[in-house]
Design a protein around this nucleic acid. Structure first.
Lengths: 215, 215
DNA sequence: CAGTGGTCTAGACCACTCT
DNA sequence: GAGTGGTCTAGACCACTGG
């Protein structure tokens, strides 16, 4: 079908309807929109789903219904803060399987989860970690407590879809696209999954010079 | 519904079925799977859609059907290459609206489009750009031809969904999640949209020191 | 209880591509 | 022509939430 799909026309109309509505405004129910647009609810939902993924709409359950997402919710999170673990976070979960020690913590902003950091370490290299770890920034803790040197850091960045488990932690629906930042050095293998509708990853560079190294 | 949705069960079975199938293997048609799993085609499609978004399956049109996506297709693209415009690219499209000059080029890898770079400039600052531009790396061209200094570079990174237009350029379906890298300096405002199933954004850093600056 | 979003079905038509 | 994926419909049931 090379013509414009109806769901995309619906999306355009919904965007128009969204206009400059202030955040948290109730949005018309799906059935009502389907009726008004003369389309099936399925088609309307397909259009609305994209708006939800784009962070324009927020769906609630039951009588809560759908509301307009507040704008300017997006926060710039620096890469350094991410790696150095400076972001606010909740209690970390530590578990060991074989010789792999996994530390998982939920990055929060206000009262909302915005990301999940998962770090894997060599368990035998860090005896008594689970008991000793005090929830302070992980890299600093490791450096101070175990005298490690991290070595070169390989960093990369991509997108992924949330697994049901991650979706629960991040309070989003399964298969929501997220920003995935991973790094690897001599000591740790880490991955941070970020809600792109809440945080952007900020990289700051001076004067166009080669401060980033080509890989 | 706190139980596991059927489409998610289907996805698990499809993942199992995918197993270690080599790339480009034909995948069973949707109707056949629906029949085999005792589910409707809609449900199967929902499961398959996620696998497509995750880059595990590739859909063709007509008799081509669905095939298993080849693995290790992902290429590491350095941020420097992106900004300095070192990546292979096709002919750039230049257009002017008002005082805004927009340069758009498709990043290719092999014969596949992997990204779209769109740069906005102040048109009056670059007289005769459209005629003079020779498709060489943009920043170098501007520096050499117009003697500009770019100043500090503000960079950030997030995810987005492809518009129908971008989807056409990237040869993906509309609303596919992509990696979006933007930067801003005294001269240009640029945005690169990358197919995350083809390229990852590589950031290389030495020795865990503060080479990235917190914003 | 009424209304919401989430899921699921069975069927339909279309554009496209291979044989 | 046969079979594929892409879209769309009309209807159904469920879990959940608010008045």
């Amino acid at each position: 079908m090379s013509a414009i799909p109806r769901y995309y026309q619906a999306k355009a109309r919904l965007l128009d309807l969204l206009g400059d509505l202030p955040g948290n405004t109730p949005f018309p129910p799906e059935r009502e929109l389907a009726d008004a647009f003369g389309m099936s609810r399925t088609t309307i939902r397909k259009a609305m789903n994209e708006l939800v993924l784009e962070g324009r709409l927020i769906r609630g359950t039951g009588r809560q219904g759908t509301i307009v997402a507040p704008r300017d919710q997006v926060h710039r999170l620096s890469l350094d803060a991410l790696v150095q673990d400076l972001a606010t976070r909740e209690q970390a979960a530590v578990r060991t399987t074989g010789d792999v020690l996994t530390v998982e913590s939920v990055l929060v902003r206000g009262d909302e989860p915005v990301g999940v950091r998962s770090t894997s370490l060599c368990a035998s290299r860090f005896p008594g970690f689970a008991e000793r770890y005090d929830n302070t920034p992980l890299r600093r803790f490791l450096a101070n407590t175990y005298r490690v040197r991290f070595g070169d850091l390989h960093l990369w960045c991509t997108t992924a879809l949330t697994t049901p488990r991650l979706a629960r932690l991040l309070d989003v629906r399964p298969a929501t696209p997220v920003l995935s930042v991973s790094w690897l050095d001599l000591v740790e293998r880490s991955r941070v999954v970020l809600r792109a509708d809440r945080v952007h990853l900020a990289l700051h560079r001076l004067q166009g010079s080669a401060q980033f190294h080509a890989s």
